[in-house]
Simulated scan of single mutants.
Amino acid sequence: MRIGVVEDDDGVADALIDALAAHRIPAQRMVRGRDLLTRHPEFDLVLLDLGLPDMDGIEVLRSLRQVSAVPVIILTARDDERSVVRGLRNGADDYLVKPARMTELLARIEAIRRRASRARQTTTSTRQFGDLTIDLAARSLSLAGQPLTLTTKEFDLLAALVDNPGAAVSRQQLMDQVWGDAFVSVSKSLDVHMTALRAKLGRPARIETIRGFGYRWIG
């Protein structure tokens, strides 16, 4: 595993790289966010500070997520709830506040490595739920062998739900993933598109409403 450390503090960066090296994990340091945006293919995981000299770390993360799914752990002094929520909603896989204990950081790195390994082993673009077949890569679906036509937003909602069948997905998560910002006032649009999607999928009901929270795919 190759780790990129995006950190402008020399002392913190050196300590991190030395500690990782002691556990036989190679790491390379970058000072600027823009360096990560050009070098991200070199790394299997990134430790990202938010207080960088050229860009705010959240902006770096947003730009990175447009081109790469490399796992990111935010490692920062910002411990306020808004920063944590923004970091996770903008694509971070985990969030740790400095000074982080090395044992905890290593455990979280290992957890992400295991998830990535399982994902590589099981990745497929097709999902099958009874007589419903969904091809996420082709953005197509069929019911009992007959093709169903969805709008772009309807398919995006469907994909977000079937990607984690049985898991509760909040309205904020859906709005963030489908419309790009959970804070944009698109709640009514979500309701309209969800109603249309359910109507097209027909009976039995495949999407469960979790009152006050969001939805769950029950297939």
Rank of each mutant, 00 (worst) to 15 (best):
S142A: 13
D181H: 08
D176T: 00
F183G: 06
P147H: 15
R198D: 15
D156V: 01
D191H: 03
V169E: 05
S189Q: 09
F155L: 13
M194Q: 01
K188A: 01
G145N: 12
A160F: 14
A182T: 07
S187N: 03
L201P: 11
K200R: 14
A196I: 08
L158T: 11
L157H: 12
L136R: 01
R171C: 11
P165D: 02
D181F: 04
L190W: 04
A168T: 04
Q173S: 08
Q146L: 00
A137D: 08
G145E: 14
M175S: 09
L190P: 09
K153R: 12
L148E: 09
F183T: 04
G202C: 06
P147V: 13
V192Y: 05
L174G: 15
L190Q: 00
H193N: 13
G145D: 15
R171M: 13
L143I: 02
A196C: 03
S187Y: 03
T195C: 12
L174D: 11
V186N: 07
G145W: 04
Q177I: 03
T151N: 09
L161P: 11
K200I: 03
D135Q: 10
L150V: 04
D163Y: 08
M175Y: 14
W179T: 05
S189L: 01
M175D: 15
H193G: 00
Q172P: 13
T195S: 14
V169S: 06
H193S: 01
A160E: 12
